[in-house]
Write a protein that binds this DNA or RNA. Structure first.
Lengths: 198, 198
DNA sequence: CCTTATTTAATACATTTGTATTAAATAATA
DNA sequence: TATTATTTAATACAAATGTATTAAATAAGG
């Protein structure tokens, strides 16, 4: 019998190498050879886990999606916290506030550009969009249930607005970290969430 | 003497062909050959206008920048309009509300992904960011001067917020036109701007 | 120790790419 | 019309790429 290798873990390692190449040199440089080299594998070896480049890229994109969605769902409400503080912290989770999140967001941005020209990726893109949307809807809804939110807010439009703010700021900070700093990003989010409350 | 050709116009035609290839097939497929074919030129001919691919891509990106900035600046204030309506219409100008604007925005998104890995493009990216930021600052400022805006708004944070909303919604609509429709995008913007006013 | 299913490594090949070169075509001026 | 600066077209070439093939290496079970 052959060497026992955890296939799934190995695939994840390769996907993370793919991320690294994309972040360092851009998605158009993410060739099979370069990814294999970055992962410390031969091309032939890599092809035992991914039989084509597009399969590899798709898996790498799905891994970002999984991580983001996992992060969104892992937060559970604790009763004894200030709700506004709690939800603010929750939204911070999906902003590029540390290296790990910045990498994921950069990779996601690179993939998003691909979604525009590869409709087979739309489903995945929409899945993340819908999850994020639902997560942010909960944020607004919690504030409303607890009577923290101002009266007369339109839930649906508020969710659209918050979602756009989150992704827009994330993009601005990645593209422009010195003009739009991490701190400005955080302050702007706090400002916005406060503006929704009484 | 040779055929007289307006160099600048020809370069713009080539850049627009570049946009078309990027929108149709993605920036990684924007090879010199394909762009030349799309523009109805030979490769050698194209190279008389752009001596390298990166020069061509840069010019194409600058053309997007020029068009957007021109659009931002071409609006002049007219006294006899409802100010809120006027500024709302102004912000619509930078949303992907028609085919021309969608193309520009898609191309810009593709280039933005490149900015992350090519620091020589940052300057141009920042220029557009700064222009947009200034334009949106004027929007908020006008509302404040005319006493339409609520009291106690923080100008700087409001600009960050509006800017993020604009770019975030634009991205959401491009990636997800059926889930986040053009109409939702417009309604959300109107809702936001109204929320800033008394 | 030997067998064997599995993994790895090396190499090959056709295609696409950016760029360069060179000859032909073009059209305004003398 | 003849000249000539400029543009266009065609071809070439090295490098990189996705994919396929085949032999070697590996390690668990008999």
């Amino acid at each position: 019998m052959p060497k026992i290798i955890d296939h799934h873990k190995r695939k994840i390692r390769i996907a993370e190498a793919t991320w690294k190449v994309i972040v360092d040199e851009g998605i158009e440089k993410a060739s099979v050879r370069k990814i294999a080299q970055t992962a410390g594998l031969s091309v032939g070896s890599l092809r035992h886990y991914f039989s084509s480049q597009s399969e590899l890229l798709r898996f790498s994109m799905e891994l970002v999606s999984d991580r983001v969605i996992q992060r969104l769902k892992s937060r559970e409400f604790s009763e004894d916290r200030d709700p506004l503080e709690f939800v603010t912290e929750g939204v911070f989770e999906v902003l590029p506030i540390d290296e790990e999140r910045k990498i994921e967001m950069e990779v996601w941005l690179a993939f998003s550009a691909k979604v525009l020209v590869d409709s087979t990726l739309s489903e995945l893109s929409n899945k993340v969009y819908d999850n994020m949307h639902q997560g942010l809807k909960n944020v607004i809804h919690v504030l409303q249930l607890l009577q923290y939110a101002k009266d007369g807010l339109c839930l649906e439009l508020e969710v659209n607005r918050l979602h756009a703010i989150v992704d827009g700021m994330a993009m601005h900070h990645l593209l422009n970290p010195e003009h739009f700093t991490e701190d400005e990003m955080k302050q702007t989010l706090i400002y916005h969430l406060q503006s929704l409350c009484k």
